[in-house]
């Protein structure tokens, strides 16, 4: 049996909101250590890797490994029924064909229960764990979201170049071109505003703006985003959870 209780429904809401426009359904793999998901979008360009560690939960038990096939649009509708501050418990028997979702209002004496029909999903998984990294940028997630939105107005591609002391985001299209350069910065009073850039090799990569638009839907999950880049390889965009992460692997665009 699986039972996981979130201190606040808002966390699961944000996770599902960040995933649902990229993949319509995916398997949630539940083990005694927590819940993980790997899912690829229809065009096979963007991969989501989610890990919700056991410590994320107020209470967690999973007696036997369970795979829950979940339609994210339907899941989003049901968890949207709870208030952000409610306790949210997900519950499934070992051979369940539904997932129980329970909201508890912390002030009123009110409990709401829902059942979500589970799906049988054939997923083919990719081996993404052994990636090397040439450059790592950590910056405020809201800043990264704004850069992606602003550059998308110019072009369907965003070029990221990283040198020793700066990262440059640029786009060029029919109406014109634009660029944003960021440099490392330590803000002691507001550590969430700090920017770090570490580099083994210079980077010059281009990514599709529409996929970056999907990635920045995770912005509310974390004040920071870490971008790991390797020349001629997919970029990794990581939003940390209180215990775990939501990562996106995005295949680059190459010159023909």
């Amino acid at each position: 049996m699986l039972e996981g209780k979130f201190e606040e429904a808002s966390l699961l809401k944000k996770i599902v909101e960040a995933m649902k426009d990229c993949v319509s359904s995916c398997n949630f793999n539940c083990t005694e250590n927590g819940i993980s998901v790997q899912a690829v979008d229809n065009s096979r360009v963007l991969l989501i890797s989610l890990l919700i560690e056991k410590d994320t939960f107020e209470e967690y038990r999973c007696d036997r490994n369970i795979t829950l096939g979940i339609g994210l649009g339907s899941f989003s509708k049901i968890i949207g029924n709870g208030a952000n501050s409610d306790y949210l418990t997900i519950q499934a028997e070992d051979d369940a064909d539904t997932l129980g979702i329970i909201f508890e209002d912390k002030v009123k004496d009110k409990i709401s229960e829902y059942n979500l029909k589970l799906l049988d999903i054939d997923a083919d998984l990719l081996e993404v764990d052994a990636m090397e990294t040439d450059a790592t940028i950590t910056l405020p997630s809201a800043d990264f979201a704004k850069i992606c939105k602003d550059m998308k107005t110019l072009s369907e591609s965003l070029q990221i170049t990283v040198t020793k002391d700066s990262a440059k985001f640029q786009s060029a299209g029919e109406i014109g071109s634009g660029s944003v350069v960021i440099k490392p910065k330590t803000d002691i009073d507001h550590p969430e505003e700090s920017i770090t850039i570490s580099l083994d090799k210079p980077i010059d990569l281009s990514f599709g703006s529409k996929y970056l638009s999907d990635i920045i839907k995770a912005t509310s999950l974390s004040q920071k985003v870490t971008i790991k880049l390797t020349e001629d390889s997919p970029g990794v965009f990581e939003y940390k959870l209180p215990s775990g992460y939501l990562r996106f692997y995005l295949a680059p665009k190459f010159d023909e």
């Binding site: 065009s43 991969l47 990719l126 665009k253 010159d255």
Partner: peptide, 14 residues
């Protein structure tokens, strides 16, 4: 012109 690659170009199937 840049061509969009897919993840299968980089990662083996598990």
């Amino acid at each position: 012109f840049k061509k969009q690659k897919t993840l299968s170009d980089f990662f083996p199937a598990k």
